[in-house]
Design a binder for these strands. Structure first.
Lengths: 212, 212
DNA sequence: AATAATTGTGAAAAATATTTGCAAATTCTT
DNA sequence: AAGAATTTGCAAATATTTTTCACAATTATT
């Protein structure tokens, strides 16, 4: 909560490190050097050391990093040590798929409630997740103390729904709608615009012929 | 094809501009200034002009931009004027959802073939898209001249499948697997790691309390 | 004890992105 | 038609972010 800010680029690499460190742990490796890690995750070793150093001195000079304690450390940093309940708003195509999607690689993230306007869907259970009517959004989010929401509603209601969700106490939104929603400054939005991604990909494809 | 490189940040904003310009066009607006656009898309007007200027002089001084020609121009730039066929590799949860997903806002992107190892699925048609067995991947991609693939297979076969796809002529991959796949340098990969996005979101949530 | 390995980090460099400031062009106003 | 008001395009300046270098300090190994 009171860490100094780490660069966005670093934050984005953390899950990648974490994932690989777990592989090492499973393989009973006890130590790893930044050079070794570098090969595996394709990130320059100096960058890795720099990234790690934002969190203090995690390694030992002349030795490297202890896999187990590093995993333990990142587990905590990445909130993998406790369960984060997530609300899914909008159970259409994509929403439905995400209900089944394995977010919880280590069981730390769980979609614990979903919401939809469709009266047919509401009050049923889909893939083990209860679906509530959209009218209960705010109430349920509050009651279940859900702070993270996945937004998969049609763009034209996105802002409206967002306002509701924020009123219900949501602090982080994974936004799958193409709309750039407006939120209070203490709420964080992460946009995943699939159409955009695909368009950007096609753009680069047509206009350059080289990676990055 | 031989444009000078435009910044990544600019490329990412293009679809946003494009989307809004279409709204203007639908509303029968004939002209728009960078300042107006700025308000709508929340990007500084100088940045917008800068962005546009990478493509030459698109506006008229003292006037602004002609909405219709700008839309037309971006339509071309963003390949919205022709159909791009896309292959979907892996028809699991997510894959299935993407089959129904409305990528084709303007009918320019179409998933024209899908692939799965599951023998039950193969040779059926799902959501109007023929599913081929994974063994036909390379052949079908070649035959149908598909250059863009969406990768939604399990991580442990991701690299293998990628190699096949690349052998089949794929030049762009929208990679939904958590694996960082390796490709020849003329192939572009755009990663969409949902687990990662969610984890990063949660990380920021716990560790800061302010947007960006 | 000497040698090799490896971290952590200040500082430099590189890469990326935004903003300023203004001449030039055009439209609008009277 | 002259003058005022807009508005682009763009070079240059600035800012921000990210990566890399380079090496002292520390630890492990032989």
């Amino acid at each position: 909560m009171t860490d100094q800010k780490i660069p966005r680029a670093t934050a984005k690499r953390l899950p990648i490190y974490y994932r690989y460190l777990n592989i090492l742990l499973d393989a009973d490796k006890t130590r790893v050097s930044s050079t070794e890690l570098s090969d595996a995750v394709k990130v320059d070793s100096a960058t890795i050391r720099r990234d790690f150093s934002y969190f203090g001195a995690l390694g030992k000079r002349g030795y490297g990093y202890d896999v187990e304690s590093l995993v333990k450390f990142f587990k905590k940093i990445l909130n993998q040590d406790r369960l984060t309940n997530v609300g899914l708003i909008g159970v259409g195509n994509l929403g439905h798929a995400l209900l089944n999607f394995n977010f919880h690689q280590d069981g730390n993230v769980r979609i614990s409630a979903a919401f939809d306007v469709n009266e047919e869907l509401a009050n049923t259970i889909q893939s083990g997740v209860p679906i509530y009517p959209m009218t209960d959004l705010r109430k349920q989010l509050e009651e279940q103390q859900i702070q993270v929401a996945i937004l998969t509603v049609p763009a034209d209601v996105a802002q409206e729904v967002t306002n509701d969700a924020v009123a219900g106490g949501v602090k982080g939104i994974l936004n799958f709608t193409p709309l750039r929603i407006t939120v209070p400054k203490d709420v964080r939005v992460q946009n995943v615009d699939l159409t955009n991604e695909l368009q950007t990909l096609i753009y680069f494809l047509e206009h350059y012929n080289h990676k990055d």
